[in-house]
Write a protein that binds this DNA or RNA. Structure first.
Lengths: 197, 197
DNA sequence: CCTTTAAGATACGTTGCGTTTCCTATCGAA
DNA sequence: TTCGATAGGAAACGCAACGTATCTTAAAGG
């Protein structure tokens, strides 16, 4: 038998579909992604997919969630600036990796599907990133580079918003000068300004 | 004659199409906007539209450009904070007016059409908004609220990026507390931090 | 072993795409 | 005023993907 004419079910099948989705995403992007292509690539059929996900947006978000890497350790490179550059670079790289085209597409579709919007928002709000930011700032405080400062939500979400905005407008990858500008012209001055009180 | 069976050309026709586009946009949004519907509403036909614009994205950007209001005067409400709240609120309102759904949709489609991306970027980079920001800051400096400070590009684009991010993620309208948080937690501290040197 | 569940294949009607064809109103030059 | 070039309007096209319905049959479990 060259063909494993097996019929998958449950978890195995689902994972195969999500893998196929991810592969399609990488190959043709979000806008051009079709359910039919995903079905074919996964070796299954449309109804199987529609039985599990309401829409392309739902499917893609599922695939994305599974792909999410867990947070790697936080840096301590000896200076606040160095840590911030590292952090922003990391965000920019990840953004380039899973195309901003996908993000833009999903965000657009999310208007049709409130649950997707919610899911996406929660996923990005509670991002492990905020933990890293806090950690980096704490280190700077410990080093005496910065006076103790509390970080409002809006400040915590800023890195992601900024990188996303630039990536979507200029297309990835985000150039190094832009990343440095985010740090030197925005985030560092902002932290210093917050620490004034 | 109840019917003006006239056949429009050139500028008149073009304007009618753009008006129809804008109306459709307001009614069904970007994602659901179809060229056929625009053609019908404008009382013309698809080929006429395709002769002028390559895609839905091009068409919508054209319509949007025509609709762009010219900048109203800059404020001077007596304090930097008040001016900034006014400014951010204005940005948020405009964002709510021409749906963030449209922005998200166009941005997503822009990946397929580099000229659209360029057009959009230029339009938003050179936004009259940056002039207003400079003016507001100058006034604060003149009042003695702030030491003289130069504003990097990244700082100038921040208001638009921030409001857009929030509008797209939470859906419009952007709540007042969010606007105030942008001013109190981000922009004001940032300006003060920049003015430290 | 026999029942239940759902995978996989196929086909369906629908919608909007972007294009082509054809006819004729409008415009500008002669 | 006439005539030829230009371009608007209407209709139809083939195509692609949508989302659904139908049917057969493999897998899972008691």
């Amino acid at each position: 038998m060259t063909e494993t004419k097996t019929r998958r079910r449950g978890e195995r099948l689902e994972q195969a579909i999500l893998d196929a989705t991810w592969a399609e995403l990488a190959e043709v992007g979000y806008t051009a992604l079709t359910i039919e292509a995903v079905a074919k690539r996964a070796g299954t059929s449309k109804p199987v997919i529609y039985r599990r996900w309401q829409s392309r947006a739902h499917l893609v978000v599922s695939a994305w969630v599974r792909q999410q890497p867990q947070e790697s350790g936080t840096p301590d490179l000896g200076s606040l600036r160095a840590d911030l550059v590292w952090l922003f670079t990391r965000v920019a790289d990840r953004m380039a990796g899973m195309m901003s085209e996908t993000i833009a597409g999903v965000m657009a579709d999310a208007f049709k599907h409130p649950e997707v919007q919610t899911l996406l928002r929660d996923r990005l709000d509670s991002a492990p990133l905020t933990g890293v930011i806090r950690h980096v700032v704490d280190n700077a405080v410990a080093r005496g580079e910065l006076r103790p400062v509390e970080l409002p939500r809006m400040v915590l979400r800023l890195p992601l918003d900024l990188v996303r905005a630039v990536a979507v407008f200029y297309g990835p990858p985000v150039p190094d000068e832009m990343v440095e500008s985010m740090v030197d012209d925005v985030y560092l001055p902002l932290l210093k300004g917050l620490a004034l009180d």
